[in-house]
Protein backbone atom coordinates (compact mmCIF):
# COMPACT_ATOMS: atom_id res chain seq x y z
CA UNK A 1 0.00 0.00 0.00
CA UNK A 2 1.23 3.49 -0.76
CA UNK A 3 1.92 5.86 2.12
CA UNK A 4 -0.22 8.95 2.37
CA UNK A 5 2.63 11.06 1.04
CA UNK A 6 3.27 8.77 -1.93
CA UNK A 7 -0.40 8.74 -2.67
CA UNK A 8 -0.50 12.50 -2.83
CA UNK A 9 2.64 12.76 -4.89
CA UNK A 10 1.71 10.10 -7.36
CA UNK A 11 -1.92 10.85 -7.55
CA UNK A 12 -2.32 14.57 -7.21
CA UNK A 13 -4.64 15.44 -10.01
CA UNK A 14 -4.23 19.05 -10.61
CA UNK A 15 -0.55 19.68 -10.89
CA UNK A 16 0.55 20.79 -14.33
CA UNK A 17 4.00 19.71 -15.38
CA UNK A 18 6.06 21.41 -18.05
CA UNK A 19 7.75 18.83 -20.24
CA UNK A 20 9.83 18.59 -23.41
CA UNK A 21 8.58 16.52 -26.32
CA UNK A 22 11.13 13.82 -27.16
CA UNK A 23 9.30 12.01 -29.92
CA UNK A 24 5.84 11.65 -31.41
CA UNK A 25 3.91 8.67 -32.63
CA UNK A 26 0.38 9.26 -33.86
CA UNK A 27 -1.49 11.10 -31.13
CA UNK A 28 0.97 10.08 -28.43
CA UNK A 29 4.13 11.89 -27.37
CA UNK A 30 6.97 10.74 -25.16
CA UNK A 31 7.88 13.68 -22.95
CA UNK A 32 10.66 14.45 -20.53
CA UNK A 33 9.42 16.24 -17.41
CA UNK A 34 12.50 17.19 -15.38
CA UNK A 35 14.09 13.83 -16.16
CA UNK A 36 10.99 11.66 -15.80
CA UNK A 37 9.91 10.19 -19.12
CA UNK A 38 6.28 9.51 -19.78
CA UNK A 39 3.97 8.86 -22.66
CA UNK A 40 1.19 11.40 -22.87
CA UNK A 41 -1.69 11.99 -25.22
CA UNK A 42 -1.04 14.98 -27.48
CA UNK A 43 -4.14 14.95 -29.69
CA UNK A 44 -5.25 18.40 -28.53
CA UNK A 45 -2.16 20.09 -29.93
CA UNK A 46 -1.52 20.55 -33.62
CA UNK A 47 1.87 20.75 -35.28
CA UNK A 48 3.94 19.54 -32.34
CA UNK A 49 7.56 18.71 -32.99
CA UNK A 50 10.30 17.10 -30.92
CA UNK A 51 11.96 19.78 -28.81
CA UNK A 52 8.71 21.69 -28.19
CA UNK A 53 7.69 22.27 -24.60
CA UNK A 54 4.18 21.40 -23.45
CA UNK A 55 2.13 21.63 -20.27
CA UNK A 56 0.92 18.20 -19.13
CA UNK A 57 -2.14 17.59 -16.94
CA UNK A 58 -3.38 14.12 -15.96
CA UNK A 59 -1.56 12.38 -18.79
CA UNK A 60 -2.58 14.83 -21.46
CA UNK A 61 -0.64 17.66 -23.10
CA UNK A 62 -3.04 20.59 -22.76
CA UNK A 63 -1.00 23.51 -24.10
CA UNK A 64 2.15 24.31 -25.98
CA UNK A 65 4.56 26.58 -24.11
CA UNK A 66 5.68 29.57 -26.19
CA UNK A 67 9.05 31.06 -25.42
CA UNK A 68 8.56 34.54 -26.78
CA UNK A 69 9.55 37.55 -24.73
CA UNK A 70 6.64 39.66 -23.66
CA UNK A 71 7.40 43.33 -23.70
CA UNK A 72 3.79 44.30 -23.29
CA UNK A 73 3.80 43.04 -19.69
CA UNK A 74 6.96 44.91 -18.86
CA UNK A 75 5.43 48.09 -20.24
CA UNK A 76 2.41 47.62 -18.00
CA UNK A 77 4.70 47.64 -14.97
CA UNK A 78 6.28 50.96 -15.90
Amino acid sequence: MLSAVQEQEEGSMCVGLPARVMNLKGNMAVVDASGAKREVDAQLLEGLEPGDYVMVHAGMAIAKIQDEENEMLEDLLK
Binding site: C14, A58, M60, I62
Partner: peptide, 13 residues
Protein backbone atom coordinates in the same frame (compact mmCIF):
# COMPACT_ATOMS: atom_id res chain seq x y z
CA UNK B 1 -13.89 11.97 -12.41
CA UNK B 2 -13.28 15.11 -10.38
CA UNK B 3 -11.43 18.22 -11.39
CA UNK B 4 -11.71 21.47 -13.24
CA UNK B 5 -11.30 22.46 -16.88
CA UNK B 6 -7.72 21.17 -16.90
CA UNK B 7 -8.56 17.59 -15.93
CA UNK B 8 -11.97 17.07 -17.54
CA UNK B 9 -10.58 16.69 -21.10
CA UNK B 10 -8.47 13.75 -19.87
CA UNK B 11 -11.60 12.05 -18.44
CA UNK B 12 -13.40 12.47 -21.76
CA UNK B 13 -10.36 11.20 -23.60
Amino acid sequence: SVGFETTTPASCL
